[in-house]
Design a protein around this nucleic acid. Sequence first.
DNA 1: GCCGTTTTCGGCCCGACTGTTTTCAGTCG
Length: 667
Amino acid sequence: MPDAGAGRPSRSTRSPRVSRPPAQERDDPRLGPPVPADIDLPDPDDPPFETRPRHSRGDAVPTLGNDQLARIFYEIGDMMELKGELPFKAGAYRRAADSIAHSPTDIVRAYREGGPPSLVGVGRAIDEKLAELADTGRMRYHERLRREVPPSLVSLLNVPGLGPRTVAELWSKLRIENLADLAAAARDGRLRKIRGISERTEQRILEGLRELEERPPERLRLGQASQIAERLAAMLDAAPDVQRTYVAGSLRRRRETIGDLDLLAESADAGSVIERFASHPVVERVTARGSYRATIRLLRGPQVDLMVMPPGRAGTYLVHFTGSAAHNVRLRELARDRGWSLSEHGFVRLDDEGRPVIVGGGGGAEPRTFETEAEVYDFLGLPFIEPELREDRGEIEAARSGRLPDLIDLESIRGDCHTHSDWSDGHVSMERMAETGRRRGYSYMVLTDHSRSLTIARGLTPERVEEQRPIIAALNERFAHEEAEGRMPKGAHPGGFRLLHGCELEITVDGRLDYPDELLARYDVVVASLHVGRKQPRKQLMERYMTALRSPHVDILAHPSGRKIGIREDLDLDWETFYRVAAETGTLLEINGSDERLDLDDRRARVARDAGCMLTIDSDAHYLGEFDNMAWGVSLARRSWIEKRDVANALPRDEFQRLVAEKPHRV
DNA sequence: GCCGTTTTCGGCCCGACTGTTTTCAGTCG
């Protein structure tokens, strides 16, 4: 490439633009804040590392999970930026961290076994650092950085409005190392000594600190986020000058938790839409406000970004505000390869020097716009990519090579395999539960009240289980009768509906199944799960799960990780073994659609499927409203690249029952 | 630091908004 040329705007003189997602925006919310106070790092004064051959690793070397590895690399990215290193280097560490966080393989284990996975964004330098972490549980480079840059400095990046440049400045000029220092300096009026910080900015920093303390960034569950977004969208839609409102962002991608909401409104009068939005009584604070976009904070609610777009050109806007940052970067690179610059406003033609081609005398480049997203992807030479896939986890490559998955959808679900009635801890009678499932168009539903030992959920004694049978039989008789007479309720499946008798079988603390085999054998479907003794060591937990997986009577293993989002951590399991045995025995693994569980999560569901497991997607409904959980479960499955053929309850009733009946022959 | 149907060097995505500034840097999404 020849000299860049005099007239060309040199890229190197432009301000560095490396995205630094705040911790709560990073792809895995469980990664937590960037200050890993809880990472068990050795004292820097420790004796130098021993280097031992890979195979001789003992238990003394801590085993780091992918999440912990990723946290280390995110922190390196932050620290490098604070040190003022080349922005692209910091970006490279973050990209590697993203790759690590989403890798389906246990990276440390793979390194120790001598077969490190090939990860996008991991080249020689980072590969060596991963090897060192796998071998020794430590990384000298990271430890050196932590000596050079106080780790607490990273926490300052969480203060709204403070970025790496300012934080570095505060550190070098005022020796501010942590939030307490910052607060003290702001109160004393010392911050305004820094160039670019006025008294007003100082006040804003104090406000930011107060807010951080009083209301730490909280992520919403899907159900909560969805409700708020729909209400706001309806409010916007009600205005005559708004043609249509779209919900975009991570909610449209159906991430498991949502940080802020992104709304798009189609209107020819952006000014008045923004004006109404920003002055609405539900708005606590307007963070930013322009001629056609605004960022506000809702009263007791999340941050909301609204963008108003001209009618008839939603395509690039929707693409821009739906894809993850990484997905969008890939699309813009693709566009650039084809001689176009892509932004939310559309495509702008680039000349040979990479400058936008100015068309007409207006002085601006008129972008090429599209009405739909499909046209945008088509313009880039790609088939339509479903929102749930837009995370840069291989979907671009799959799209280019025509290997995008044919994702499962809600309409394909034929039955719900995990529901509760008021016989145990549900709140609705068996009849109403069944009737609701029937009217939703299912052809079957499994009633799975809890087993006896789970007394907190009013688990059923074998006697109570027997009492359920005639009630279920009578219901099915009525359904059959009505079907024969053609008296089906609105929405019912034309092939008829049956309530199947199941249970949610507790795997007890001492590793037994909660009912005797003779009783289990009489159920249509047995769903096993574990609610107690969650803190047991991995070996014991695995033994309990193995008992269930190898039982000829257990058909489905429910919410395998046992997590509750933001409340309870995952069980400590050997997942590889778990998937292998589930696949061998033909035990179905559940994607639990409750938005506080979403378990298996999107990474695990994909790995499980790839390991040969068949899945179910269930609502775990305890109330009528919770039948809607099925939609969350399905979107999780879609994020996991799951297809219809991977999902047992997308099978017609007879095939599903045949599949379940095969289990005893496989163990 | 990574990466390559513009390969081993020279690039690396795009724009809005804010604040303090007289033309732009920093932050954010």
